[in-house]
Design a binder for these strands. Sequence first.
DNA 1: TATTGTTATACTCTATAACTATA
DNA 2: TATAGTTATAGAGTATAACAATA
Lengths: 157, 157
Amino acid sequence: MQTESGASPGSQLLPVLSGLVDLLRQLQGPEQPSSVALTVLRLLAERGPGRVTDLARLARVSQPGMTQLVGRMEKAGLVRRVADPGDGRAVLVELTAAGREQRARTFAYHAATLDTLFERLDPRDSDVITQALPALIRLVDAGHAERPGHSPSGGEL
Amino acid sequence: MQTESGASPGSQLLPVLSGLVDLLRQLQGPEQPSSVALTVLRLLAERGPGRVTDLARLARVSQPGMTQLVGRMEKAGLVRRVADPGDGRAVLVELTAAGREQRARTFAYHAATLDTLFERLDPRDSDVITQALPALIRLVDAGHAERPGHSPSGGEL
DNA sequence: TATTGTTATACTCTATAACTATA
DNA sequence: TATAGTTATAGAGTATAACAATA
C-alpha cells in the first residue's frame, strides 16, 4: 500500500481509510451486529436515549429504515422504546442492560483486535498514530459540522 | 468525540475509526457503488486482474457472494471475465475502461469531500494526520499479514 | 400544515448448500 | 480428492410511498 506524497491530504488519506474500513469489515466478532446497528449502539451509549428521527439522521439511514432497525434491535432485547414525555408524537429509544453489555463486548473485542495489530508495529509508529488521534477526531467533527441542524457535541439526542 | 488517554492504543483508535467509517458512509457520491464493490474496484485497479476466490478472500465475502457481485459488475460493464490461461478452472476478473473510469471518479469525489474537511482543520492538525499516514498504512498491512497465505505486497492477485 | 413514526412493498445484497468442471 | 466457480434458495437489510397521530 502506498500514497503519492505530492497529492492532496484527502487523496492521501482516502486509500488509508479504505484499508481501515476493510480491516474493520473483518472485525465482526461473535455477535455480528451490522455496521448501522453498531453505530446505533454507540450513539445511544455515548449520548443517551434518542429519537428515531435523530438516530436515522446521525446513522445516515432513512427514517423507516431506522424504525425497522430499532424494531429488530428491540426484538433482540438490545433497546427499548419509551414514550417521549414532552412530545406525544415522538418515541425515545434507549439501551437495555443487554444492549449496553453487547456494545461493551463488541467494543472490547474490536479494541483487542486492533491492539494485536499495534503489537506488531514499531513503537514509533504506534506513537505517531496515537499523537494523530486528536487531529483525526477534529477531522471527524468537521464532517459532522457539515450537516445542517446538528451541533457536534450534541444536545438534541 | 473524545478518548481516554490512559487506554490501549486499540481502544483509543477504535472510536476514531468508527467516526471515520460513519463519515465514509455519507460519501456515497453519484454512482453509489456498494462498499464491497468499491473494494473490488480498488483491488483490481491497484493489483490488476484477479481470481474470484482471491477477490472474495481480500474483500472478506464468500466465494458465491463474489461470483454474484462480479456478475452484477459485469452486467454494469465495470469488469469482464477472461479465462485463466494457466488454470482451466479459474477465471480472471479485470477492469474495463468504464470500470477504471468509475473507480477514478469515485476516488476523486471521495478525496474532494475529504479535502473540504481538511480545509476546515487547523493546518497543524492536517500536518499531524499526514505525518501519521505511513504508520497507519503499516497498521493496515499488519492486519493483512494476519491472513495466512497472503503476502502484504501481493503476488497472487 | 408540519413533524414523528409506522406499515406496505419491492429490491439489493449476501450467505449456505448443492452442483459442475478441472487439477 | 481438492480446488475454482456457479446456481439455487433463503434471509437480512434498506429504500420509497402511503398512512396515522400529534404539534
